[in-house]
């Protein structure tokens, strides 16, 4: 391109600077400022901010609800990873390998919940779990398992596990598509060779499909972990609000409660720092353990 250096930099600035300014103001600055806020005791009015050093962090370590919120978050992470990956892998293999005529129908239907609003999903499932009107309890009564019916979201023991099903329901389609993309890239000749060697379909799955789509599996798991740690509180907020008796509070919903309902903004920021650190550590550890050489046959 024929243009002077000055013109080039002017154009570059035109492209990058306005966006960078907006990004800095509305994303970077708040993140760093959040770290700073965590050192203050602050109820929101501008005069009352008081520098308290690490006392919010001391409070964090002594808050008996914090370990529970961390446990709840990781409970959701683990159950979602297993629930989604097992079902998504099964569906992906079934839809690609078996040449089912109506495969596009399933693909379209299974993906749809991924673009539904969490509010809609949450309210819909709250109704499914509704003790008197809900589908689950009526279904259990219908098949004679009356003793299994319970106030799912109202029970301290069952509320958290009850949140797993809607999350799996809403998430499966995306990961199924990601895995299907991987499987369709696996050359047919591997399967033909495996067939000649007498491998059963089950063996083909374990020895051919799974190793070759490992990159997609790895990305899917990482993605589930990240989105759960960074966003599980949304469905919690809609469906239970952290209750009953804190039994479903995750880190993010507890932050919301502390900061925006009880106006402990400094302490809320401290919880935010904890979320940031925990999710970064988790991702690093996972990337270390899931490093597996790319398989080539």
């Amino acid at each position: 391109m024929v243009q002077s250096k000055k013109q080039k930099y002017l154009f570059l600035a035109f492209c990058l600077v306005p966006t960078m300014i907006m990004f800095s103001i509305f994303t970077l600055y708040p993140l760093f400022n959040g770290l700073y806020y965590s050192l203050f005791s602050w109820s929101g009015s501008s005069s009352a901010a008081e520098f308290t050093g690490l006392s919010n962090y001391v409070k964090l370590f002594n808050d008996s609800i914090i370990p529970r919120t961390i446990f709840h978050d990781y409970f959701l992470v683990v159950t979602k990873v297993f629930g989604i990956m097992i079902l998504a892998t099964f569906f992906a293999v079934a839809l690609t390998q078996l040449r089912i005529k109506e495969a596009p129908f399933y693909r379209i239907v299974f993906f749809f919940p991924n673009i539904m609003s969490v509010v809609v999903i949450g309210i819909l499932w709250s109704f499914i779990y509704n003790p008197s009107l809900g589908l689950i309890n009526s279904g259990l009564e219908l098949v004679g398992l009356d003793s299994w019916t319970r106030p799912w979201l109202g029970s301290e023991d069952w509320a958290l596990p009850s949140l797993v099903l809607p999350s799996v329901w809403a998430g499966i389609g995306l990961f199924m598509l990601m895995l299907m993309g991987g499987i369709s890239n696996v050359s047919k000749s591997y399967y033909e060779a495996a067939e000649i060697d007498g491998a059963t379909e089950w063996q083909q799955f374990w020895k051919v499909t799974l190793p070759l789509i490992w990159p997609q599996i790895k990305i899917s798991i990482l993605y589930i972990v990240i989105t759960t740690l960074n966003g599980s509180f949304i469905i919690v907020q809609v469906m239970t609000g952290g209750g009953p008796n804190n039994s479903t509070h995750v880190m993010g919903s507890y932050l919301y409660q502390q900061a925006f309902q009880q106006y402990n903004f400094g302490y809320g920021a401290t919880i935010g720092v904890m979320i940031l650190i925990l999710s970064l550590i988790t991702v690093l550890i996972m990337q270390f353990f899931m490093r597996r050489e790319k398989v080539e046959y």
């Binding site: 570059l12 708040p30 993140l31 400022n33 959040g34 806020y37």
Partner: peptide, 28 residues
């Protein structure tokens, strides 16, 4: 456009997809 810091800027934007934004909501 080839310029110094291109890679860095791209990585900065992309890594923002992975960072929990909850922390930023209080200052925001």
């Amino acid at each position: 456009i080839v310029f110094k810091g291109n890679r860095f800027l791209f990585t900065l934007y992309i890594s923002a997809m992975m960072i929990p934004t909850v922390l930023g909501w209080i200052p925001l």
